[in-house]
């Protein structure tokens, strides 16, 4: 397994605050990697740097061997590196099916590729993915009328629709009914195994991340605190201290 995403010495400051202090992580092809840390430890900042929302002060980011440090959001997305948002973002006034069709990977192409109606294949694909996320019966509803948890699932389905090679998930289980969480973990694992999508997941729910990830990075105060298997992280005293606020 080669590393699909490599972040080297990434540093990002906001004014005087160092949100990320020379952080290096690697995400191997086909793996599920977790990113944990207390609130304000710089997880979302790192996500934003990777997908191109803001410039790094120093350091570099490589995706599938290509330097992406200076690319912008849509360009990185078209390379197959997508992210979902902590506060879900969907197209509220469009139906679920339209949301899916608009997320079809080909939407990033030039204008002439778009001047065709939505193909039957796209539609089938969308229905299958909605079925996969348990939203099939809601497919003709306006996305804005769905509950928060359903919107989160829809956002996940939209991300899959775009056929990314790597997906960055920002707290996929936050705000989701605990009884649905097991189903979601199952779906994430299947997306990883069946569709071959590499996952990098920010998560606060320890049970979820321990269950899901093969390898975990823990951030605190903008620095990389620990890295290792779920087992290592669980027993790492520094991680426990960070979460209990002993710093």
């Amino acid at each position: 397994m080669s590393a699909q995403l490599v972040v080297e010495q990434a540093t990002k400051r906001f004014g005087g605050v160092v949100a990320n202090d020379s952080i290096s992580i690697e995400v191997p092809q086909g793996s599920i990697v977790g990113l944990i840390g207390p609130n304000g430890s710089g997880k979302t900042t790192l996500f934003n740097s990777i997908v191109g929302y803001h410039a790094l002060d120093s350091g570099s980011i490589r995706f599938e061997g290509q330097e992406i440090t200076s690319l912008r959001v849509p360009e990185i997305a078209r390379l197959g590196l997508l992210r979902t948002f902590q506060q879900t973002r969907i197209y509220g006034k469009m139906t679920c099916m339209e949301n899916m069709a608009a997320s079809d990977g080909e939407c990033g192409r030039g204008i002439f590729d778009l001047l065709r109606p939505v193909s039957a294949e796209t539609r089938e694909n969308a229905e299958a993915l909605l079925e996969f996320c348990g939203l099939h019966s809601k497919r003709h509803l306006r996305a804005g009328d769905l509950s928060f948890g359903q919107q989160k699932l829809l956002e996940f389905a939209m991300a899959l629709m775009a056929k990314p090679s790597m997906l960055l998930l920002d707290e996929p289980t936050a705000g989701i009914n605990p009884t649905l969480i097991n189903g979601l973990i199952e779906r994430l694992k299947r997306a990883n195994q069946d569709l071959g999508i590499t996952l990098l997941v920010i998560e606060h729910n320890m049970r979820v991340i321990m269950n899901l990830a093969e390898h975990i990075y823990c951030l605190a105060h903008g620095e990389l605190l620990a890295a290792g298997s779920p087992e290592d992280i669980r027993n790492d005293k520094r991680v426990i201290d960070a979460y209990l606020g002993a710093h």
Partner: peptide
Amino acid sequence: RTRFGLALNAIRDNEDKAEAMGLRTGL
């Protein structure tokens, strides 16, 4: 009814999301 139309609606509903999904919104 084309995907171009859908892309326009996606920009209307959430342009940040559309960019994050890789749409060429400016074009």
